[in-house]
Design a protein around this nucleic acid. Structure first.
Lengths: 180, 180
DNA sequence: TTAACCATGTAAAAAGTTACATGATTGT
DNA sequence: ACAATCATGTAACTTTTTACATGGTTAA
């Protein structure tokens, strides 16, 4: 599933401007695009050229004009196709694993410090993740099912962080039991 | 930690050619670079220019000449710095989450089929992952500690896949309990 | 007055993938 | 014959990020 398909999903859910889409990409951590201007605005132009979205220009008194987009029928058709296509296997970039891989060059104390630091970092990330889920205003809830699914998607990240902490704890114990 | 640091780690462990490095990047799933020619050979040239690695050209009778690299003292110093620097928070690209996010456009049966397919895919990936760990010949074991750490790094991926299956199971139950 | 918000777009740079280019050897 | 392995490197392309460019409003 590429960026344009995800945007299509948002524009099927709600009429949105490029600026609002940027906000969504910035606030939803499970979206693997930064949502910078270049990505969003060029994607919208392309989607429009392909007839998958249509826009409505709204002139405002004090703030600049808005281009409010929504998905067309063809857009929705393409979205459904994308949703039903096979998912690409998830891939994780875990920088800490690389640090650990070459930790041979560290003393026992240095290695312990490395693990301690990372554990604190993950704990913080988990706390922030849970905080965000709580006070997040974005909710896809056109149906009870959609609301449930959206929660599951958001909880996914917290689960990964908790798994990381469990793995770290096991690593720490394993290293301690090996002695100095 | 960038590509050059990881290569430095390998060349501190063992003298290797670009070709052999390519093989390592292809076989170790936790390395977030494909290890294509462009990446490896240009990285090696740069590392050499910076004095972080040095090479030994070995002429062979039948196969092309080898350039066998190893890390220098400065290279090792840079590696240790990189290892001790703060790790970047892990980031996951999970395509299935995006499919799920817009699954609103699917019927109950279509959604179930989507989840079924993905579950089978993850089960296969987990089986392959475990297989690979078993028959893998690459082992960093300059010390007992390093061997332990290497195992932990390899197990990390299997743990993530198992977590994905647990999460899927919970999702499936949750959707079933909501009724049709 | 300084920063954040609103609102859209383009240009340049960096990172990553795929393809091109060469060429002998070994196994099926 | 055909594919795979060994061995190195470059060129073209795609994707992603960062920076440029503009400019009014609102709140601390």
């Amino acid at each position: 599933m590429e960026l344009k398909d995800v945007i299509l999903g948002f524009l099927d859910w709600k009429e949105l401007t490029g600026y609002e889409l940027k906000g969504l990409f910035a606030s939803l951590d499970f979206l693997p695009w930064s949502g910078n201007n270049n990505q969003i605005y060029t994607a919208l132009l392309e989607l429009e050229k392909e007839g998958l979205v249509e826009k409505q220009v709204i002139q405002q008194e004090k703030t600049p004009a808005q281009k409010r987009y929504k998905a067309t029928a063809q857009g929705l058709a393409r979205l459904k196709e994308a949703v039903q296509s096979g998912a690409v296997q998830a891939e994780t970039k875990n920088d800490f694993l690389l640090h650990l891989l070459w930790s041979h060059c560290l003393s026992k104390e240095e290695l312990t410090a490395l693990i301690d630091n990372y554990q604190r970092q993950v704990e913080t990330a988990l706390a922030m993740c849970r905080e965000k889920i709580k006070r997040d205003k974005v909710h896809m809830q056109r149906s009870e099912r959609e609301a449930y699914v959206f929660d599951a998607v958001q909880e996914h990240e917290a689960l990964l962080l908790q798994t990381e902490l469990n793995w770290l704890s096991k690593l720490r114990n394993g290293l301690a039991n090996k002695g100095g």
